[in-house]
């Protein structure tokens, strides 16, 4: 079967899977960014309990693998009375996993904002919250965007694991097509190419563009 015939026959399923992957990607990104920001601020907090909680989250999710976390969240949490459907468990796991890595990026960027900026904001007698929101974070954002670009590629790749709890994403569809047709090269090859295209021609350019826009806003471009 030629690749064109293959695409004509199974293209719809590939597209369905890609849309689910895209949805997982977007939702997981939201989770990751929120978790990263909260954990980074928590780790920089003076409150011991908050700091402890943030450090625990970061170390736990960075120290174990995404697959383990996915199984925990999907299979174990129900034992504690928290039952999530597979779609939610999927993007939540991926988001929390990547968020732990993102937290370190956010923290590094916040700490990389020059000391003079903190002192200047202090001299204007800004409250800590306002200082963080108005002065520090906007500058940190520019610094953290390039590493976030790489991390979002990792996130996209991470979403492929949700197929293991039967979320019908791109990976899942490729597996299904393979199982019913044995057209392995076509099925998995197409999926590989789609992931590559998403990473290389959607996520990377979008992040580059965001970097430019943010740099311009800070008057650095």
């Amino acid at each position: 079967m030629s690749i064109w015939e293959f695409l004509q026959t199974y293209g719809a399923r590939i597209i369905d899977g890609t849309l689910v992957t895209a949805a997982q990607f977007v939702l997981a990104t939201l989770v990751a960014v929120t978790a990263a920001l909260a954990a980074a601020l928590g780790k920089l907090s003076r409150n011991l309990a908050v700091r402890g909680l943030a450090v625990t989250y970061i170390e736990l999710f960075r120290g174990t693998s995404l697959l383990v976390q996915l199984y925990w969240i999907f299979f174990v949490l129900p034992l504690f009375g928290i039952t999530l459907d597979k779609f939610t468990a999927g993007f939540l796991s991926v988001g929390l996993n990547i968020g732990a890595y993102g937290a370190e990026i956010v923290r590094g960027a916040i700490q990389a904002v020059p000391k003079g900026q903190w002192e200047a904001a202090y001299a204007l007698s800004m409250s800590p919250a306002r200082r963080m929101r108005r002065i520090i974070l906007p500058q940190a954002l520019v610094l953290m965007l390039p590493p976030w670009g790489n991390l979002l590629i990792e996130l996209l790749k991470g979403t492929a694991l949700v197929s293991l709890i039967s979320v019908a994403d791109l990976m899942f569809q490729a597996k299904q097509i393979n199982a019913s047709t044995f057209l392995s090269a076509q099925a998995f090859g197409t999926a590989l190419v789609v992931y590559y295209l998403l990473a290389r021609f959607l996520i990377t350019p979008a992040m580059r563009r965001l970097e430019r826009v943010m740099a311009q806003r800070l008057g650095r471009a």
């Binding site: 590629i153 996209l156 790749k157 991470g158 979403t159 492929a160 694991l161 197929s163 293991l164 990976m171 490729a174 597996k175 393979n178 044995f182 057209l183 392995s184 090269a185 998995f188 090859g189 999926a191 590989l192 992931y195 590559y196 990473a199 290389r200």
Partner: peptide, 23 residues
């Protein structure tokens, strides 16, 4: 290198395992 780095490992594992027999 770019291609390998931007596609999921789990998919690559499937690819290597299942595509071989086809050839």
């Amino acid at each position: 290198v770019e291609f390998i780095r931007s596609t999921p490992l789990v998919l690559q594992i499937f690819f290597v395992f299942y595509v071989g027999p086809q050839f």
